[in-house]
C-alpha cells in the first residue's frame, strides 16, 4: 500500500513538468522565430528542437555541445558480394526497391525489414545496426538545450523525436525545472504525432494565407485528437487583415484560444541572419506582441 502511494506521488511530481510544443502545419510561418523568442523570455526551462528532419533552432541557440550520442534508428541490409550468387531472390522480394539490378543496396531506401536476409539462399545478406542520427545535449545562453540531427533521408524521425523529448524530460527533472519548450516539426505526420503525445500545451503559429489556414485547421484537429486544446497566434497578420479576421473567427467558433497577432517585420529575418532571437535583436512591435503572447501562455501553463 505504502509503495503505491509513493508511486502516485512520483507521478504527480512528473506531471508538474509542462511541455509546451509549438507547431504550425505549414512550414515557414515563423515557428522557430517564435520558439527562440520564448527562449529569451522563459525562465528555468529546457529547450528542445523536435524539427529533426530539418533542425534549425541551433543556428540561433549557438549551442556548446556537452554530450552527444548516436541514435540507432534500426538495421540495414548489407550484402556480401563475395558470397552473392546473383540469383535475384532479394530483388524480387524487396518491397522498397532498395536492391538495384547490380546487386548493390541503396542504403537510403532500405527499411531494415530483413526479408532479403532471411530468404537469401546463400546467406550473403546480413542485417547491421545503422546510425540514423545524433542527439545532443548542449549549454546555451538560454539554458540547457536538447537537439538532434538526422542523417539525410533517414526515417524514424518519430522515434528520434520521442528520444529528444525523453532526454529533455530527464534534464528538466535533474534541474528541477517545470517547463520544456519544444520546436515541433511541420506537417501532420509521424514526427508531429510523436511530439504531441503527452504534451501539456500546444501553440499553433499560422499566417493569414489560404494554405496557412488550411494547414492550421488540420493541426487544430490533430491536437484535439490528443485531447489538447491548442492556442493559436497569427504571424505576419498584416499581409492580409481579412484572412487574419477569418482565423480569429475560426478560433472563436471552435473554442480555440486565440493568443495574438504578430506583424510582418523584416527584423525577424535580420535577427535570424545575426543569429539572435528577435527579443535580443529589437524592441519593436514584434517583440512587444510576442511578450504579450508569452504572458498568456504563462497563465495557461500556470508557471
Amino acid at each position: 500500500m505504502e509503495e503505491k502511494d509513493t508511486d502516485i506521488e512520483k507521478e504527480e511530481d512528473m506531471s508538474k513538468i509542462n511541455e509546451l510544443i509549438v507547431i504550425s502545419g505549414k512550414g515557414g510561418t515563423g515557428k522557430t522565430t517564435i520558439v527562440s523568442a520564448f527562449a529569451s523570455l522563459a525562465k528555468n526551462k529546457i529547450m528542445a528542437d523536435c524539427d529533426v528532419d530539418a533542425a534549425d533552432l541551433h543556428l540561433i541557440m549557438n549551442p556548446e555541445i556537452r554530450h552527444r550520442e548516436n541514435f540507432i534508428g534500426g538495421t540495414r541490409a548489407v550484402l556480401n558480394q563475395d558470397k552473392c550468387i546473383k540469383c535475384g531472390k532479394c530483388i524480387e522480394l524487396c518491397r522498397f526497391d532498395a536492391i538495384k539490378d547490380d546487386f548493390c543496396i541503396e542504403e537510403p531506401y532500405c527499411e531494415g525489414c530483413s526479408v532479403c536476409s532471411y530468404f537469401c539462399p546463400v546467406k550473403a545478406i546480413t542485417m547491421e545496426d545503422s546510425i540514423s542520427g545524433e542527439i545532443f545535449i548542449s549549454d546555451t545562453r538560454f539554458g540547457p538545450f536538447v537537439h538532434a540531427k538526422l542523417g539525410i533521408a533517414q526515417e524514424n524521425s518519430g522515434k528520434l523525436v520521442t528520444e529528444v523529448r525523453k532526454k529533455a524530460k530527464k534534464l528538466a527533472e535533474e534541474n528541477k525545472f517545470n517547463l520544456i519548450i519544444i520546436d515541433g516539426s511541420p506537417g501532420t505526420g509521424c514526427p508531429v504525432i510523436a511530439s504531441l503525445a503527452g504534451a501539456t500545451s500546444v501553440l499553433i503559429v499560422t499566417e493569414p494565407t489560404l494554405s496557412g489556414i488550411h494547414d492550421m485547421k488540420r493541426v487544430v484537429e490533430l491536437s484535439k485528437n490528443f485531447s489538447i486544446n491548442p492556442s493559436v497566434c497569427i504571424n505576419k497578420y498584416d499581409i492580409n487583415i481579412e484572412l487574419s479576421k477569418k482565423i480569429e473567427d475560426y478560433c472563436m467558433k471552435n473554442s480555440v484560444d486565440f493568443y495574438g497577432r504578430l506583424p510582418y517585420d523584416e527584423n525577424t529575418t535580420k535577427a535570424m541572419v545575426a543569429r539572435k532571437t528577435i527579443i535580443e535583436y529589437s524592441s519593436g512591435e514584434f517583440s512587444n506582441s510576442i511578450k504579450g503572447i508569452w504572458i498568456k501562455l504563462e497563465e495557461k501553463l500556470e508557471i
Binding site: 528532419d53 530539418a54 540561433i60 533521408a153 541572419v273
Partner: peptide, 25 residues
C-alpha cells in the same frame, strides 16, 4: 519539405531539381 524518405520518392530519378531557398540561415 524536409529530407525524408517521402522526399526521396518525390525526387527519385527526376531529370532536374529546383531547390527553392530564401535568405535566412
Amino acid at each position: 519539405p524536409g529530407l525524408s524518405p517521402t522526399l526521396l520518392e518525390a525526387i527519385d530519378k527526376t531529370d532536374f531539381s529546383i531547390v527553392v531557398t530564401e535568405p535566412s540561415e
